[in-house]
Design a protein around this nucleic acid. Structure first.
Length: 411
RNA sequence: CGGGGUGUUGUGUAACGGUAGCACGAACGCUUUGGGAGCGUUUAGUCCGAGUUCGAAUCUCGGCACCCCGACCA
């Protein structure tokens, strides 16, 4: 990508009146644009990151048999009446058609996937299975906050699993928990993300949240100093001792929820009468689970966890580009060499943003730091004199000269 | 939803009730080219509506928007 053509603008002034780092940096670096409170546009840079996050999640969901599909955002009121959530779920967006018909804007999709499963599931032979989607969700939050960390419209992966027995469900649930841990590891936030015992809301007694430690978070979790088991504050209130090892010595941390998995039991299969005929010829309700990850929130969380005073420091796995190629001088020799390098890198499928603009070096470097691409490769007369380019990793302070022919071995 | 705060060119900010100014950005020209460079010219603003006043960005009332705290939170 030529930076001169990229649809973005950076801003060196701090964003006024916001106190979350990710909101400030993502806005100033040209990743997102706020349309209104709790609603954001993802600009090309931000969208590239979102796609990286999406692909990591997709790959991991497929690894546990999840089949991808796409369910409607616009949903019939009757389904929500059936589960008693039309009037009780305060975050539910309701819209009216030009007639008088009312719809829900999907905040989640149990009300859709369960009746859909009813058309596919008749026998124990049809179970188990799991399906997932990556889609924009709508939740009428009373108070949006912290940039893209808590919004009214956000991208979410939701997977639903269906089982004939509780035992089968439990095995799958644990498998998902492991896959979730792997996903956060791939995002580069594995070490600060804790599987956390939490309340199950309206579905179940307990659920498991995945909480990433950050000051920008709105949750408080307690981590057992003995066994590292983590519980949400709401659980701690009821159980002063660690549910796992009974130790009562905890570390209290602020965190943000980047995923949540729930045992649904028969909470949705019963209202929608989703049942199957078992081996013994009796009809039984299907056991369900659901598993969510907010992609846009993850994006913000990674920035919260990985930045410095100059800007964002993307982990390689989710960076919009791997290499930020910067041409210092405008003379034909340097321009030609840089352009050649740009094309060569692309040929080798290395994602590169090429700063081909006529700007001062200082401005280019400052902007590069703000955008946060993992490798900065600088080409100038000075480096070309020794057939080299200068390479600096965004996460490191040191720079090194690398022969042009050896460059791709670095990545 | 309860409470608090703030709305001034694209962005960040200043202006006692009395000429709306500064920096960045953008545009043009010249210079500059290893950390947001220099000089000159130009561009563009008081959230909306009422009221008080000789006079309102400034005071009052209403509305709208955004931010923060709390509550809520698949």
């Amino acid at each position: 990508m030529l930076q001169s053509k990229l649809f973005y603008k950076t801003n060196k002034n701090k964003t006024a009146g916001v106190d979350s780092v990710s909101h400030d940096l993502l806005t100033r670096a040209g990743y997102v644009d706020q349309l209104m409170s709790g609603v954001y546009s993802f600009l090309p840079l931000g969208f590239l990151v979102l796609k990286k996050i999406e692909n990591i999640i997709r790959k991991n969901m497929q690894s546990v048999g999840g089949q991808e599909l796409l369910l409607p955002v616009l949903q019939p009121k009757e389904n929500w009446i059936k589960t008693n959530r039309w009037d009780t779920l305060d975050i539910l967006f309701k819209v009216k058609s030009s007639g008088d018909k009312e719809y829900a804007m999907g905040p989640t999709h149990e009300e859709i996937i369960t009746p859909l499963a009813k058309k596919m599931v008749f026998s124990y032979r049809d179970l188990p299975f799991s399906v997932f989607q990556i889609q924009t969700k709508f939740r009428d939050e009373l108070r949006a906050k912290s940039g893209i960390l808590r919004t009214r419209e956000f991208l979410m992966k939701d997977l639903y699993s269906f089982h004939s027995t509780q035992a089968d469900f439990e095995v799958y649930y644990e498998k998902l928990a492991k896959v979730y841990a792997n996903i956060y590891k791939e995002f580069g936030i594995g070490k600060i993300t804790y599987r956390t015992m939490a309340s199950g809301g309206s579905f179940s007694k307990y659920s498991d949240e995945f909480q990433t430690l950050t000051e920008a978070g709105e949750d408080i979790i307690f981590i057992c100093k003995k066994c590292s088991f983590a519980v949400n504050k709401e659980i701690k209130v009821e159980n002063p001792a660690c549910p796992k090892c009974q130790n009562a010595d905890f570390e209290e941390k602020k965190s943000i929820e980047v995923g949540n998995i729930f045992p649904l039991g028969t909470g949705f299969s019963k209202p929608f009468d989703l049942k199957f005929t078992d081996k013994d010829a009796t009809e039984k309700p299907v056991i369900m689970g659901c598993y969510g990850i907010g992609l846009s929130r993850v994006l913000g969380t990674i920035v919260e966890a990985s930045h410095d005073d100059k800007g964002i420091v993307w982990p390689k796995s989710v960076a919009p580009f791997l290499v930020h190629l910067i041409q210092i001088e405008q003379n034909p020799k340097v321009a030609k060499a840089t352009k050649k390098l740009y094309l060569d890198l692309q040929k080798q499928n290395i994602e590169v943003l090429y700063d081909d603009r006529q700007k001062n070096p200082g401005e280019k470097f400052a902007e590069s730091d703000l955008i946060g691409i993992p490798y900065r490769v600088v080409v100038s007369e000075r480096t070309l004199a020794v057939n080299s380019v200068e390479v600096k990793e965004r996460s490191k302070a040191s720079v090194k000269l690398v022969k042009i022919k050896d460059l791709t071995k670095l990545f």
